[in-house]
Amino acid sequence: MKPAKIGIDAGGSLLKIAFEEHGQTHYKSYSIDELNSSMNWLKMTAAGAPIALTGGKAEYLKKEFFQNARIVSEFEANCIGASYLMKQDDLFYVKYFLINIGTGTSICLNNNGTISRLFGSGIGGGTFMGLGSLLTGEKDFSKLVSLAGKGTSESADLLVKDIYSPYGSPINGSLTASNFGKTLHADNISKEDKAASLTKMIAETIVLLSAQSAAQHQTDAIIYIGSTLKNNVPLKQLLEKYTAMLGLNPVFVQNGEFSGAMGALLSL
């Protein structure tokens, strides 16, 4: 490739790249383990192209590979990039929350173009990979997602109906009383069920944080982006289910995992 300009989001787990070539925007991603090989390749093939960097390893990339690159703050890049990608999907909201699920999760408010970061959580893709590896022994993201899609979280989670059994519960019995609450007394929980329970715990935590923010700032539009959502159907389905259950509007942006890279690109 011989791109006209390049935006790179160098995060804790992935390198996301957005680049313009022949008037079109393209996207690529690499594992952080491929940092040196992928950036050396890009340095050779894209010599002379303007580059903007964002993310936790932006300073490192600038020093080691792209000394003339521009650095854009991660917060700014993600918000600008997400706004652009939403417009490409014909999504228009005056006021909305942007939930970026990367290695961790950050929550931002966009109020008629005024953007502010509210807070973040350590629960995110890093949790999925790290805790998922401890629970199942699997270290590959796509395989963990596949396990979660085949599992049943009820085998590991203690539900409200379990606590009130054999009588009826005063609230929805299918709600989680305790994530992994059954594991203390069960020895035969499958890898699939553990991965499903982990995915549910992450989804519930993110939705509850989003709902609290939405109640405080009085908006129901919840925009989900981030690399943890890529090809992760189980997580997306749970986020959609629980967000809607709380009366909010869940929205997923196409190519949302490249929001930071796109925002960096747009700064050039």
Rank of each mutant, 00 (worst) to 15 (best):
65 F>I: 11
164 Y>N: 10
130 G>A: 01
244 A>P: 06
267 S>Q: 03
66 F>E: 12
171 I>Q: 14
139 K>M: 05
47 A>N: 04
235 L>P: 13
1 M>F: 06
173 G>E: 14
100 N>V: 03
246 L>R: 12
265 L>A: 03
256 G>T: 08
261 A>G: 15
252 F>A: 05
261 A>T: 07
28 K>C: 06
225 I>A: 12
172 N>E: 10
100 N>F: 00
11 G>E: 11
73 S>K: 13
107 I>D: 01
190 S>K: 02
192 E>M: 01
151 G>Y: 11
176 T>Y: 05
203 A>L: 00
170 P>L: 02
42 L>W: 07
49 A>N: 13
29 S>A: 09
261 A>Y: 12
136 T>E: 01
201 M>Q: 02
175 L>C: 15
207 V>E: 07
112 N>C: 04
177 A>M: 04
246 L>P: 09
255 N>D: 12
155 S>I: 14
18 A>V: 07
21 E>W: 03
96 Y>C: 00
92 F>V: 15
62 K>S: 01
30 Y>N: 13
262 M>T: 14
205 T>F: 07
58 A>P: 06
149 G>L: 09
210 S>H: 04
178 S>K: 06
229 L>S: 09
228 T>G: 12
85 L>H: 03
182 K>S: 02
264 A>D: 15
203 A>M: 09
1 M>P: 03
168 G>F: 11
39 M>N: 12
246 L>G: 06
57 K>D: 05
225 I>K: 05
85 L>S: 12
38 S>F: 08
234 P>H: 11
